[in-house]
Design a protein around this nucleic acid. Structure first.
Lengths: 340, 340
DNA sequence: AATAGTAGCGAGAACGTTATCGAAACCAGA
DNA sequence: TCTGGTTTCGATAACGTTCTCGCTACTATT
């Protein structure tokens, strides 16, 4: 703070050359001799020079920064996505600024609006489960700010999006339950307005219809294991009890398993449970949870890649990326091998 | 990008006043009349003006940004710490830039060295478990960059640090095991060089000594559940088998429980297990894992608070904050109530 | 009525870098 | 020796904002 940071001027002064030459030597410009470049680079290293990004950002409009707006990071999926984003960004020499909305539409709007257009080159966003008004994002688009959504994406806005194949994943999960001999299948669904919720719900419904089965209940609620428990309470207090549940995510699946165990119901043998995510805890819980694995890390990398392409090429076409999921069979959907 | 962003000059031009006045009106300067301020603010809003942080950062040295350098975020503790950091930073109008080192000392050094001193006001760091050379951090300190460490802190550097009380936590864990009647206690320790590892090890050793007990083994390894499994394999293949283990963190504790269950050993009744963290999965695993709860969220907030104080007051004294932990008793250390 | 004080504003420099333009130095060919 | 073409470099203007002066006009005091 008080100490003087060495600038390009200092280097120029000690070397007796102009700042322009120093600036050129720093970058890969041809307009400088090999010896002076080496001289500049050496003294720069000696004087512990670091470029001032505020200055470079001022003159070339473009900071090498991207903003990531995400509901939370305290779960496996989101934290893994961020890891993917971060790694790709670093490889491409971009820096990531993190904004947590805590799943509050109010905070999301506030963060997006206060985001200085000049402080980031682009935006990677995953909306809250409350977001129904997207005008704050639309303002960004009008200002030509590169923007790509991942995982939870709005339907009404035309931007690039990167998601997992939620529909097919849901079909696979439901098919698996049916193949295992379950027929009274219910669905623990996510918040109503989320695209992802609707996709997974539709995959579930379509697969049931394909097999001439009826739904044994669909309950919409949040993503926590507590939500899962509560939904099971409702589901199993109804006259027509299901013999399997497909949960919109693993955490609600954990809640479902815990509720079933707490009520002396054998998970797998009596009631099957399948989740969606492949959270590491799904291997740890007893019985272990069958699930649809999401490529979280790749979603992070891919969405960052698409964003940076948008940043670097003005008219890069809008991308609709959908990454494949995978069925992972564990104990919670096995009728025979039930153990413990 | 191609579209013109409104600047302070545009506002000045449309209003027929000088840029200086507009600048003053934006901030809380007395040197401007109430009416012109209102006029400026209104047209600024109308023209959708956003401040250019590159410019402000250039003239006042100080971007409102802090960098967070952390090994990973894909676990409960780190992601919760970041959440705390993020929330406090946002409240104080600071923005956080995230850097993941992936627990690689090489990456950590690279990130710290390439970090432009001018692009952030301060640094919040948690070292990798490989870091033994701290010269890259010392360079930052020499350049008067505010720096505070959290959780994993170096001993040799004199900066502010924010940690949980690892020593007392380890004492509490060991005391609890002894109180439950276990006497042959082993310790699944963390990576050797980490201060946190040594503190928890020392707490364990001191408590054993206090009760005239001998250690039934200390094994150093990483933090994953796989490490926990592997360490148990070694521990239980030795002639003197323990009847309880204190794990340096919950994830290794999960591995320990899984290993014991896999070998038909009743967790709790035959062999007690206690962890450290209070990862949400510790409630989900069977049997549920007793643990020492860490105040992860508060550690995030507190370390951010200390950093911002350092940023704002040049000679803010160095802080050594140690936040209390809490014993959480669950099934894995209960000899009597063992169920399932 | 003269002076002092103050509120409100403008002009211009500064922050550290890049970009544009042109000048100097050198070389080759005639 | 002169011309033309490179290569290498320096001066200077920009980028958007804040800050330091200083100026004007108004109010208050005597």
């Amino acid at each position: 703070m008080t100490k003087r940071i060495t600038t390009i001027k200092d280097i120029a002064k000690t070397l007796g050359i102009s700042v322009a030459t120093v600036s050129r030597a720093m970058r890969d410009t041809y307009d400088v001799s090999a010896e002076t470049r080496k001289l500049v680079l050496d003294t720069a290293a000696k004087m512990n020079y670091r470029p001032n990004f505020n200055a470079t950002g001022l003159v070339k409009s473009g900071t090498h920064k991207i903003a990531v707006i995400i509901p939370a990071i305290t779960n496996y999926y989101f934290s893994t996505v961020i890891t993917g984003i971060q790694e790709y960004a670093l490889e491409q020499n971009y820096q990531v600024m993190l904004y947590l909305t805590n799943d509050s539409a109010y905070w999301e709007r506030k963060v997006v609006q206060e985001l200085s257009l000049s402080s980031v080159d682009g935006l990677l966003a995953c909306i809250t489960c409350e977001t129904i008004d997207f005008s704050h994002f639309e303002e960004l688009i009008e200002a030509d700010m590169p923007l790509v959504f991942f995982d939870r994406v709005p339907e009404s806005i035309s931007t690039s999006v990167v998601v997992q194949d939620d529909y097919t994943g849901a079909c696979m999960a439901t098919e698996h339950l049916i193949a295992q001999g379950y027929s009274k299948i219910a669905h623990l669904a996510g918040p109503r307005d989320l695209n992802l919720t609707q996709q997974r719900l539709q995959g579930y419904l379509d697969t049931l219809k394909k097999h001439d089965l009826e739904s044994y209940g669909v309950i919409h609620s949040g993503f926590s294991d507590e939500n899962g428990r509560h939904d099971m309470e409702i589901l199993f207090n109804s006259p027509s009890k299901p013999d399997a549940v497909f949960s919109v995510n693993d955490r609600k699946g954990f809640g479902a398993i815990l509720w079933l165990r707490g009520h002396g119901i054998l998970v797998g043998k009596e009631v099957g449970v399948i989740g969606f995510t492949n959270d590491p805890t799904s291997k740890i819980i007893t019985p272990s949870l069958s699930t649809i694995a999401e490529p979280a890390y790749e979603i992070g990398r891919k969405s960052c890649e698409v964003l940076i392409k948008h940043i670097q090429k003005q008219n890069y076409p809008i991308q609709q990326v959908s990454l494949p999921t995978e069925l992972i069979v564990r104990e919670s959907t096995q009728r025979k091998l039930y153990q413990v």
